[in-house]
Design a protein around this nucleic acid. Structure first.
Length: 299
DNA sequence: AACAGTGCCAACCGCTATTCC
DNA sequence: CGGAATAGCGGTTGGCACTGT
């Protein structure tokens, strides 16, 4: 026998939300904040499952949602992040303020997939269809695909996950922040070019039990404005404001994101939140520390 | 005008992860 | 420490809107 249902299904509405239901939910959350979703429907006078309320709020009613069409820049960000993270929609959403994971997932499935296919790129592997065919034939393959600008890519991920196989760039000699597509190519772990030497592992990475893989997660995309809302709350740091994070923690986080199972990503994101230790003030806290309704807490 | 086909997206479902007791 | 409760995630689906015939 499975788990009991999250709510009394016989007495809950399903399907599209009415304006009245929306208003009730908004009013309740405005005055009480997001709390226990299970008890919220009853407290708010809604005949809905708590889960349904949560989804409605997060995906539709939240005041900071952007709505409207995705920009080309957002498209690029999604493609780049998807090539790195795969279908981790909540992580991708964390880098796109005002967008929800559900929205991005839908957009991916309805627009971007098609866009990539039309360009001859496999949306799953982010490798050109031709290159994939070549790889299947057992030859070296370097697909022309989105450059992720991994300036310090060093050790090829040992995973078999296809999503991690295309993230290497030829290491460049400088640390300029500009993207140089001529120096970048996607490749598989079978790529014959040897990786650059490993830099010393950052102390934080060592402290966190990292494998020592030092992968610089420089996506060369705009830094996110700090969104106070994320569905996951994970991996949505105020990157630009944290020198320590940029210097030490981000490479480690990137390495683990690239290699570890999804659970580990969450754990690392949580473990690496050093807002409190760094003495950051209210405006500088990451989303793990700051709740949307104005109540600040340290994670 | 009527119908069929297609695209889009909000919402649901089932599962896993995390927290609580 | 273990089980129950809750939260969160990603895949899937239902239904509406739009377009073509």
């Amino acid at each position: 026998m499975g788990r009991s249902p999250c709510c009394e299904k016989a007495h809950t509405n399903k399907g599209a939300w009415t304006k009245e239901e929306d208003q009730r939910l908004i009013n309740y959350i405005r005055s009480h904040g997001e709390g226990c979703w299970r008890s919220l429907p009853k407290a708010a006078g809604l005949l809905r499952c708590g889960k349904s309320c949560r989804l409605r709020w997060i995906n539709y009613l939240r005041p900071d949602l952007k709505r409207g069409n995705f920009t080309d820049e957002e498209d690029d960000i999604i493609i780049k992040l998807h090539s790195l993270l795969g279908n981790k929609w909540s992580l991708i959403a964390g880098r796109l303020p005002g967008r929800t994971d559900n929205e991005i997932k839908n957009y991916w499935n309805t627009h971007i997939k098609r866009k990539l296919i039309s360009r001859g790129i496999d949306p799953h592997t982010h490798r050109s269809v031709n290159a994939a065919a070549t790889a299947a034939a057992g030859t070296t393959n370097i697909a022309a695909t989105t450059c992720l600008d991994f300036r310090h890519s060093v050790t090829p991920p040992s995973t078999n996950d296809p999503d991690t196989k295309n993230i290497l760039c030829t290491p460049t000699t400088d640390n300029s922040s500009s993207i140089d597509n001529t120096k970048c190519s996607s490749s598989t772990t079978e790529e014959s070019q040897p990786p650059a030497p490993l830099p010393p592992p950052p102390p934080a990475a060592a402290a966190e039990g990292s494998t020592g893989l030092a992968l610089d997660l420089e996506l060369s995309i705009g830094l996110p404005s700090q969104s106070k809302y994320t569905r996951s709350g994970s991996f949505n740091f105020s990157w630009a404001e944290s020198k320590s994070f940029n210097d030490f923690l981000r490479p480690a986080a990137a390495a683990i994101v690239a290699e570890a199972p999804p659970t580990a990503v969450k754990l690392v994101a949580r473990a690496m939140c050093l807002c409190r230790q760094m003495g950051l003030q209210k405006g500088q806290l990451c989303s793990n520390c700051q709740s949307y309704n104005g109540v600040y807490r340290y994670c």
